[in-house]
Computed example of a mutant assay.
Amino acid sequence: MAEKLALVGIGKIARDQHIPAISANPDWALEATVSRHASVDGIPSYTELQSLLDERPDISTISLAIPPQPRFAYAEAALKAGRNVMLEKPPGQSLAECFALKSLAEEMGVTIFATWHSRFADCVPDLKSWLAARELKRLRIIWKEDVQHWHPGQEWIWEPGGMGVFDPGINALSIMTEILPHAVHVRDATLEFPDNRATPISAELRFTDPEGADVSAVFDWRQQGPQTWDIEIETTNANARLSLGGSKLEIDGELIREGSDNEYSNLYARMSELVRLRTSDMDLSPFIHVCDAFALGRRVVTSPFHY
């Protein structure tokens, strides 16, 4: 029997990704939505999460597709009501919030899943397997996109907790932390802040690798024309390039695989598995890199940004 699920937040990401993935998975049944301003045809809707929790004890799982700033209160309420919780990335606006939610889920005996959708791109497992058998010499993330196109009018992303360019950049970090056979940590960073915004529009990070590899990342929200979501890897005997956010893999210039947009379908399959096994997945390693970048980063003020 399908697990009953409620989706909180009916914005662009919910309509483009969450709802199609839920509808295509027989393990899930979308039973309700929560949003102050939107709804889904044919699905019962609520404007407050607490009303849903009070009125629908049969709904076992809450999926949160809302900005990170209010997410803790929603997740906390759902967990205290004994519901499983699925968190859109990033899992919160601070590490302390995430650790608190992880502990609460353990206390309540329910599942919590900090999702990193880019980790579930089709070619990420292939690259992880390929890299495991080789000695890494260099890894370079180039993640550049147009904020005007991908986040039109979304003021929350420029506020404290919204993370700015790290909102997409954390996707690349989630891939990096998945494919590397060992952990790295941020050594230094430079963050560019528009002088009218509280979060960065670009960032450059350099990492310390225990094996001595050169690991770095550049994120920029001012990209015009073609968008760039690449990870370039050099090893002792071959080179790889993961592009299109993880859906295209080339080795020494030869196309190995080009996948489809299955990230959210794979997320909901993973959530189904976690609920069935009564366990959780709360890996915070990509978020730790972002927090370290804010802590260690040199702040540079740049031109104002306006939509």
Rank of each mutant, 00 (worst) to 15 (best):
M86H: 15
M86L: 15
M86F: 15
L87D: 09
K89G: 02
P90M: 02
P90F: 03
P90D: 01
P91C: 04
P91F: 00
Q93G: 10
S94V: 12
S94P: 13
L95R: 13
E97D: 13
A100F: 02
A100T: 10
A100Y: 05
A100V: 01
S103W: 00
S103I: 04
L104Y: 06
E106I: 10
E106K: 14
E107T: 15
M108R: 09
T111Q: 03
T111D: 03
F113V: 14
A114L: 10
T115V: 11
T115I: 03
T115R: 02
S118G: 06
R119D: 03
R119F: 01
R119Q: 12
F120C: 07
A121H: 09
A121I: 08
A121R: 12
A121P: 11
D122H: 08
D122G: 03
D122E: 13
D122T: 07
C123Q: 10
V124Y: 00
V124W: 00
V124C: 04
P125C: 03
D126P: 04
L127A: 14
L127Q: 05
L127P: 12
K128M: 10
S129D: 13
S129R: 03
L131A: 01
A132Q: 14
A133E: 14
A133N: 07
R134E: 11
L136K: 04
L139G: 14
L139M: 14
I142Y: 09
W143V: 09
K144Y: 10
E145V: 07
D146A: 14
D146W: 08
Q148F: 09
Q148L: 15
H151W: 14
P152W: 03
G153N: 09
Q154S: 13
Q154V: 15
Q154P: 08
E155V: 10
E155W: 07
I157Q: 09
W158E: 02
E159P: 03
P160V: 12
G161E: 03
G162R: 06
M163E: 13
M163S: 11
G169Y: 00
G169A: 00
G169C: 04
I170R: 00
N171E: 07
A172P: 06
L173F: 00
L173R: 01
L173H: 00
I175E: 00
M176D: 02
M176V: 02
T177W: 00
E178W: 01
I179A: 00
I179G: 01
I179H: 02
L180W: 04
L180D: 02
P181T: 11
P181V: 14
P181H: 07
A183V: 14
V184Q: 03
R187C: 14
D188A: 13
A189W: 10
L191C: 15
E192R: 15
F193R: 01
F193K: 06
N196E: 10
R197A: 07
A198K: 05
T199M: 12
P200M: 07
P200T: 06
P200E: 12
A203T: 11
R206I: 06
F207M: 05
F207S: 01
